[in-house]
Simulated scan of single mutants.
Amino acid sequence: MGDLESGSGGNGLKRHPVESSSLQKKPLFHSWFQFLILLCLVVFILCYTLSSSSLSWWQSFPLHVQWTSRLNPPRHYRHPQQRVELNEIHKTTQDPPVAPTGTQYHQAYPRNYHFIMDNTEVCKTKTPFLVLMVPVAPNNIAARDAIRQTWGKDSLVQGEVVLTLFMLGLSGGADGEQQQEKLKQENLQHHDLIQSDFMDTYLNLTIKTMVIMDWLATRCPTAAYAMKIDSDMFLNIDNLVIMLQRPGIPKLNYLTGMLMWNRPVVRSKDSKWYVPEEMYPDPQYPTYTLGMGYVFSNDLPEKYVDVSKSIKPFNIEDAYIGMCMKILGLEPTSPPNPSQFKAYNTRYDRCEYSKIITYILGSPQELINYWTDMKKPGPPC
């Protein structure tokens, strides 16, 4: 059987235009003019309805969702100890104003936080060649005092102005107010504390590092170089300055230290360095410098802050800086003498310590003891 034509009866024959009056329909419109008037009225009502409802139909259309998702980054992992709540993600590509009511971009973006203790004048009176930024726990005054007595003591090293500052977050616990008052008194005495309003925890080290970068970018942009160095480190500051004075050391886009290549992401939940896949899905990190102490030209902090808007945060701070470098299209540089950046040692040797730049120590007292011995008269070797 052939297909029945549209408008045909059950016998498959085409109906004649003129049929009995029982089958004819009265015309809906008496003229094309009436039809056009009604059509214009319908269009007007539809446009008015759409404009009053803010184009809700367009907002629900899949193509719209795909387009706006490029402007609005996804919500990110937030650690339970994190103070700032995630709310509406900022929708522009410009720097947002600091707003106390919520997080802009994500929780590791440093301009979500506020400096509650600062020393803004330290880079105005002198232009430092090198700024040493030391992240330290608020209650670890022993580490700060040991550094003040040793490698953070001198403001002039090898003829260059060197500045040492300590970066702190907020301490928790019932004695928070008492601790805060002690910090204020300590800063009045030494003028070297910088404190921001994030919770000072191990899992917030990425936030702490990015706040350091923000301080360098906004408070001390004229410095030539900076170093992020942990508070449990021995730093041979003379050797570091001598290295940076070498003619071939870049003045821009320079990051150096102990380089880490092809490091796998730790997925074991029992590890201190555990990172879940939702925070960092790739199996290995980009090349980065070990967080114990890395040196960089001071043009990089502002670039790190800016590029961090588009980088999902995770809790391994030195690898996060490596990711910033990768997104910027840059790579860390091996130091002129890689053997100068060392991690752990088995014993103290005066000759060895006279040649290196960094070593990890076990206690503030070790730092004082080794430094005192290093400064004794006579050749080290």
Rank of each mutant, 00 (worst) to 15 (best):
D232V: 03
V275Y: 01
D95Y: 04
A143P: 00
V157H: 04
S6W: 13
A224Y: 01
T164C: 09
N369L: 12
L259W: 07
Q81W: 04
R75I: 13
S297V: 14
D214G: 01
Q94I: 08
F296K: 07
F129S: 03
V122D: 02
C381S: 09
M210K: 06
M199W: 13
S363I: 13
G257S: 10
L252M: 11
A174D: 08
Q180F: 12
D373F: 02
L163A: 00
K228W: 02
D230L: 01
G172A: 06
L330E: 02
L71W: 12
A223D: 03
G10L: 14
K184E: 13
Y304W: 15
S231H: 07
L4C: 13
N315L: 14
A146P: 05
K342W: 07
V211P: 02
V43D: 01
M133S: 12
H114T: 15
Q149E: 12
F35Q: 06
H30A: 03
E88T: 11
S308G: 09
P73D: 03
P286K: 04
E277G: 01
Y320N: 02
G248M: 13
L165V: 15
T206C: 03
V161M: 00
D192M: 09
N119V: 15
V275I: 15
T201H: 13
Q284A: 09
L367G: 04
P80I: 10
T287L: 04
